[in-house]
Amino acid sequence: MEQAKETKATKKNVFDSFQDGTRKGWNIFVKSMMPSIVMAYTFIYILEATGLMDFLSNLFAPVMGIFGLPPIAVVCLATVFFSRAGGCALAASFVVDGSLTSMQATILLPTMFLIGGTINQWVRIISVCGTRSERQMYIIGLTWILAFVSLWVSRFVFAIFA
């Protein structure tokens, strides 16, 4: 593809670099972001139209309540399993329609990022690095523990910078 051409060039100016980057961004958008958003919106429509959303909301309300988040936050956390970009985009749309506050979305962001890609990055990183299986569990366990501890900690951290 174009990548071969890109690496051959010795030095690119600011304008070419910017365009190369926007092209990469476009690919991320077309290949990852847009499909996962369309998928998520359709899925949410199905959940809402069938009444399953209310059921799930009631189910997860206590858990999400512990972290000061509305039950709909579960949908974002579930979506990042398929796509980090999709989960984040969904959180953005929840802020737009008022289901999440900006602060709640900010708190969710690091957690979504940490648990997103648990499975595929496991194969692509931990297996490639060659860590033995008993220690693989530690790495994934630590990531998940930190992800949920972050739901509490991040609000204080981000409050400083707000």
Binding site: I28, S32, R84, A85, C88, A92, S102, T106, F113, F158
Partner: peptide
């Protein structure tokens, strides 16, 4: 992954 995947949230979060 962050500046690509999470960028959709940049306009809606309370921090830079």
């Amino acid at each position: 992954n962050y500046f690509g995947g999470a960028s959709s949230l940049f306009a809606y979060i309370t921090v830079g």
